Simulated assay, not measured.
Amino acid sequence: MKSPATTSFPTRCGRVLRLLGHLAIGVFIVATRYSRLAQAERAVVTRRWAQHALKILGVSIKVQGVNPGFYPPNTLLVANHVSWLDIAVLNSCTVSRFVAKREIRNWPLIGWLAYVAGTLFIDRGNRRDASRINQILADAMGNGGCMAVFPESTTSDGSGLLPFKASLFEAALLSGGTVQPVSLRYQRPDGSLLLEAAYIGQISLFESIGRVLSVPQIEVEICYGQPLRAGDAGLDNRFLLAEQARREVARGLRIALEDSPQPNSSSEEKSQA
Results as ranks from 00 to 15, higher is better:
residue 100 A to E: 12
residue 138 A to S: 03
residue 78 V to F: 15
residue 136 I to E: 12
residue 134 N to F: 13
residue 122 I to Q: 00
residue 99 V to R: 10
residue 117 A to C: 03
residue 111 G to V: 03
residue 117 A to Q: 13
residue 89 V to I: 01
residue 131 S to F: 14
residue 82 V to G: 09
residue 78 V to Y: 13
residue 98 F to S: 08
residue 77 L to E: 11
residue 96 S to W: 10
residue 95 V to C: 11
residue 138 A to D: 04
residue 81 H to L: 04
residue 114 A to W: 09
residue 78 V to T: 15
residue 88 A to W: 00
residue 133 I to N: 05
residue 107 W to E: 08
residue 118 G to F: 01
residue 132 R to W: 03
residue 89 V to F: 00
residue 124 R to N: 04
residue 118 G to L: 03
residue 114 A to N: 07
residue 83 S to G: 14
residue 135 Q to K: 14
residue 134 N to D: 15
residue 137 L to K: 01
residue 81 H to D: 08
residue 105 R to S: 11
residue 103 E to L: 03
residue 126 N to D: 14
residue 77 L to V: 13
residue 123 D to R: 15
residue 108 P to S: 06
residue 125 G to N: 12
residue 122 I to P: 01
residue 87 I to M: 08
residue 113 L to F: 12
residue 82 V to N: 07
residue 97 R to F: 13
residue 96 S to G: 10
residue 83 S to F: 07
residue 121 F to N: 02
residue 117 A to W: 04
residue 110 I to S: 06
residue 114 A to V: 06
residue 127 R to T: 08
residue 107 W to G: 06
residue 76 L to R: 04
residue 123 D to A: 14
residue 97 R to D: 14
residue 125 G to E: 14
residue 117 A to R: 08
residue 126 N to R: 06
residue 79 A to S: 15
residue 82 V to L: 10
residue 85 L to I: 04
